[in-house]
Nucleic acid binder design. Structure first.
Lengths: 134, 134
DNA sequence: GCTTGACCTTCCAGTTGATGGAAGGTTTAC
DNA sequence: GTAAACCTTCCATCAACTGGAAGGTCAAGC
């Protein structure tokens, strides 16, 4: 199949597939007589694997590791598990960060009248001291 | 004061301050006879405002709007409040996304032995169908 | 007067993970 | 024959910086 069909089946865009080939994340696709890339189901499965891994938060460097494991019949499942657990922890930390930011925003919004006047607790607070000058 | 002192007080790096000037987020700094940038407390306050706004999740485009409000004595506090509430909602959506990703990862981790063997539910799941081919 | 180190300057390149678009070749259907 | 829908490569762009090179300035100490 051609690249657009592979894209449809894998959940990646054609641009992204070419990009992944470009950065050697995947092997160069086979080519037809016309120079078009050709994909078999094995190739599409790899692309789909990448799409899924990206969806759950792995970056391309980590995807590379995961692909390495996927292809390695002598792998240890422990390695995959470690990657997943670390990524989950990372997401947890990021979520905490975003929550903290959100709670600051909520507090700011509460303290602001939000009317037609220029007096605004939000702007005052953002302008004011967050940490004292050390 | 010179740029490094302004950086220390505002919480931005010198690189970032120059960058903000470069993209016209802030007005060009005054210059001393030696060509060095010079900052007064008003300038530092603006830098600090930016640092705080970035910390709570505003992007530079939004920071530009916030700065506009900060400088405008005829502003309506409603505008600032709207920006804050929208940003909070945005963070909320992002948090939900990350949580969903995390929960997928947790499920994957649970289903994997995580031992020395090659059999791995994680890799199988990521490789397997997420959505049927339509 | 000279050196050393800590400043400062500009400019260019790289990061991440794509995406948009131009210019042009191919295929398919009518 | 021609139009639409593919495909190709290559180059530019996005956000928000950061790193580093090459070079000017300044203050302290000898």
């Amino acid at each position: 199949m051609n690249i657009s069909e592979a894209a449809r089946r894998s959940g990646l865009s054609t641009k992204t597939i070419r990009y992944y080939e470009d950065i050697d994340l995947i092997a160069p696709a086979q080519r037809g007589d016309n120079g078009y890339r050709r994909y078999d189901t094995a190739a599409v499965e790899e692309l789909h694997f990448l799409a899924r891994a990206r969806e759950v938060g792995f970056d391309l460097k980590e995807c590379r590791q995961l692909l390495g494991l996927l292809r390695d019949s002598h792998r240890q499942s422990r390695h995959a598990r470690d990657l997943v657990l670390e990524k989950s922890a990372q997401l947890g930390r990021r979520i905490q960060q975003l929550r903290a930011m959100q709670s600051v925003l909520e507090t700011l919004a509460q303290r602001c009248h939000g009317d037609e006047g220029p007096e605004c607790a939000i702007l005052e607070d953002l302008a004011g001291a967050s940490e004292p000058v050390k």
